[in-house]
Simulated assay, not measured.
Amino acid sequence: MNDEGQPYRLTRLPRGLTLRALVPNAITVAALCSGLTGIRFGIVGNWEKAVIAVILAGLLDGIDGRIARLLRAQSRFGAELDSLADSLSFGMAPALILFLWSLQDLPRFGWFAALGLAICCALRLARFNAQIDVQEQPHKSAGFLTGVPAPVGAGLALLPLYLWLASGRDEFREPVAVAIWVAVIAFLMISNLATLSWTSLRPRRNIRLEMLALAGLIFAALLTEPWWTLAVLCAGYLVLMPYGVFSYAKIRRQRAARMAAALTDGASAQAD
């Protein structure tokens, strides 16, 4: 009761987003800003900063989802925001950077190659969103991805730029070769190829110290020779792609054999 003898009224505090929910979304927005800033650096011809901005966007994109799961702050809004940021940072940004750097010297076809990269990135992300609630996903259930993921695709598309920055040779800036390369990467992004994910990479325990040493050496190489190191990492990923395809084919054969054995056992049990 208050001083006038009236009962107190309980009022609800205004509801809003908690800091826990804002953190992963803020990281996603930071990734979006980083990718778009890469376009700004590309417009003024600062190619090194343009590449670094796209790579930074990829690093931020790699941690926002993990932080959301760690904080239990996953939301549909965050998933949609992440896809929108990925489309701009890994589709539009590298496409415009490559166009300004090389593809604009190839009349007509250069712009179509850049458009293809941006469109295929958007299509890949749309396919990913459409399959979020789909229960039966053979690649995902086996620990693989379908096609080259958007951040990796952006990094691979920029490979000619890495080589040009590392060597200074204009052969890597040849617009016809760059256009063909960009078209290949765009196709790989929307392909149905089974590609490796972090969950499918499981090195044996007896080489874990060697893996840690390799990670340290790669980090040191990125600090001293970033462009050659990025080029080598891209080459390593391309070399591992056939391994991912063969590994998934092996898992699929094993699943088919187990299913056939189960059907045979079921038929035998019914016959008995």
Rank of each mutant, 00 (worst) to 15 (best):
G216H: 09
V176D: 07
A21T: 10
L217D: 01
E136R: 07
P14N: 05
R76N: 14
N192Y: 03
E174K: 06
D265Y: 04
T11M: 11
G153F: 13
S34L: 01
L159V: 15
I43M: 09
V148M: 04
I67R: 00
W227K: 13
G143K: 08
P138E: 03
I43K: 01
F109E: 06
A257D: 06
L71T: 12
W181A: 04
Q137K: 11
D61P: 04
E171I: 14
L115H: 05
T146G: 00
D265E: 05
A130N: 11
A166W: 02
P203C: 13
A118R: 01
L159D: 10
G147F: 12
L159S: 10
L70C: 04
D272G: 14
P24I: 14
L158A: 08
G244K: 02
G155T: 02
G168C: 11
R204C: 04
D272I: 15
A177F: 11
T199I: 13
V239A: 10
D133M: 03
L36R: 09
R12C: 09
R205H: 12
T199G: 09
K49Y: 14
L201K: 07
S200W: 11
S191C: 08
P151I: 10
A68D: 02
G116M: 13
W181H: 13
C234T: 12
M241E: 03
L81I: 08
A166P: 04
I190P: 00
A122L: 08
G58A: 13
T37N: 01
G16F: 06
N25A: 12
L163M: 09
G42K: 05
Y8F: 15
C33I: 09
L240K: 00
I207E: 11
L56A: 10
N192R: 03
V184D: 01
L36Q: 08
A157M: 09
S89T: 04
L156K: 00
Q6E: 10
A235H: 04
L263P: 07
A130G: 06
F219T: 15
I251C: 02
L263F: 13
G116V: 12
A269L: 12
E171F: 15
M259Y: 15
L158K: 03
F112D: 05
R202W: 12
L230S: 05
E210L: 15
V182E: 01
L238P: 00
P242H: 04
I52H: 06
N206L: 11
S87Q: 11
A93K: 05
L125G: 06
I67A: 03
A50Y: 12
A235S: 14
I132E: 01
Y8R: 13
S268K: 14
E4P: 02
E210F: 15
S268T: 13
S102L: 15
F77A: 11
W47V: 06
Y248F: 15
E174P: 00
F187K: 00
G143D: 02
C120G: 12
F112V: 12
R204G: 15
V44S: 05
D265A: 14
G143W: 08
L223K: 09
G147H: 07
L96Q: 05
T264S: 06
C121A: 08
P24K: 03
L103W: 07
G78S: 00
A93M: 09
G38H: 08
R252A: 15
E4W: 14
D170S: 15
V29D: 00
V51R: 03
I218S: 10
Q104P: 08
V245S: 04
T229V: 12
